[in-house]
Amino acid sequence: MAQLYFYYSAMNAGKSTTLLQSAFNYQERGMQPLLFTAAIDNRYGVGKISSRIGLEADAHLYDNQTSLFEHVATILAQEKVDCLLIDESQFLTKQQVLELTDVVDKLRIPVLCYGLRTDFRGELFEGSQYLLAWADKLVELKTVCHCGRKASRVIRQDSEGNAIADGDQVVIGGNERYVSVCRRHYKQMLGLL
């Protein structure tokens, strides 16, 4: 039975690695996964899903104008699709998450989404909000703060390593810009504790 899954975490928990492992598992069994990633994040190349440990795969791109249901239905008319794997799913729109429920319910294709739950202000991304609300299965992938506690927040840093409290929700970056921390260190770094 097809279901909508949301695998979420703070940064550096291995979301892309887990996605790529899932794709490999499907392929190893002779099945055909369909991979998507956000066009806005091209740090590792256009149309690539890459993990920090060196794994990568080609992927279809989506932006906030992409009709994921139509895209998947078009591909399905030409070839077999056994599952849909979506990286950077925090960048999905409400409409796209709704379309993913239709991929599951109408096309009967499992959809596995991987993304951040919250931004550097501790607020939900739009895609994450609706995945948390509508997914059949929620799975938290864990990473750790420098103190050893579970990291549940992300700090955005300036070029000198100072925590930033305000700004655009989406600023693409990696370890040079963001650090995952526990709630206590999040508050401490922002001067709230």
Results as ranks from 00 to 15, higher is better:
112 L>T: 02
113 C>Q: 06
113 C>K: 09
115 G>T: 04
115 G>K: 07
115 G>S: 05
115 G>R: 05
115 G>H: 02
115 G>P: 12
116 L>H: 00
116 L>R: 00
117 R>I: 00
117 R>F: 00
117 R>H: 03
118 T>N: 08
118 T>A: 00
119 D>L: 06
119 D>I: 00
120 F>I: 04
120 F>G: 03
120 F>Q: 02
120 F>C: 02
122 G>Q: 01
122 G>F: 00
122 G>M: 03
122 G>Y: 05
123 E>P: 01
123 E>Y: 06
123 E>W: 02
123 E>S: 08
124 L>F: 10
124 L>Y: 08
124 L>C: 07
125 F>S: 02
125 F>R: 04
126 E>A: 03
126 E>Y: 02
126 E>M: 06
126 E>S: 09
127 G>Q: 09
127 G>R: 03
128 S>E: 04
128 S>P: 03
128 S>C: 04
128 S>W: 01
128 S>H: 09
129 Q>T: 09
129 Q>L: 09
129 Q>F: 01
130 Y>L: 13
130 Y>R: 01
130 Y>P: 08
130 Y>A: 01
131 L>Y: 09
132 L>Y: 01
132 L>A: 02
132 L>W: 04
133 A>Y: 03
133 A>S: 14
133 A>Q: 15
133 A>W: 04
134 W>R: 13
134 W>A: 08
134 W>I: 03
135 A>P: 11
135 A>S: 15
135 A>V: 10
135 A>F: 04
136 D>C: 00
137 K>C: 07
137 K>G: 00
138 L>C: 05
138 L>I: 04
138 L>M: 12
139 V>I: 15
140 E>Y: 03
141 L>A: 04
141 L>S: 10
141 L>R: 15
141 L>G: 13
142 K>G: 08
142 K>I: 14
142 K>N: 06
142 K>L: 14
142 K>C: 10
142 K>W: 02
142 K>D: 04
143 T>F: 00
144 V>F: 14
145 C>V: 11
145 C>P: 13
146 H>T: 09
148 G>N: 12
148 G>T: 11
150 K>C: 06
150 K>I: 14
150 K>P: 13
150 K>L: 12
150 K>N: 09
150 K>Y: 08
151 A>Q: 12
151 A>M: 09
151 A>K: 09
151 A>W: 05
152 S>D: 12
152 S>W: 02
153 R>G: 04
153 R>M: 07
154 V>H: 00
154 V>R: 02
154 V>T: 14
155 I>R: 06
155 I>A: 02
156 R>D: 08
157 Q>K: 15
157 Q>M: 13
157 Q>H: 10
157 Q>L: 14
158 D>I: 01
158 D>Y: 01
159 S>P: 06
159 S>D: 14
160 E>C: 05
160 E>A: 10
161 G>H: 06
161 G>T: 11
161 G>Y: 00
161 G>R: 05
162 N>Y: 08
162 N>W: 07
163 A>D: 14
163 A>C: 15
163 A>M: 11
163 A>L: 11
165 A>C: 12
165 A>H: 13
166 D>L: 09
166 D>H: 13
166 D>Q: 13
167 G>Q: 10
167 G>E: 07
167 G>P: 11
167 G>D: 14
167 G>Y: 07
168 D>K: 14
169 Q>S: 10
169 Q>C: 04
170 V>L: 12
170 V>Y: 01
170 V>D: 07
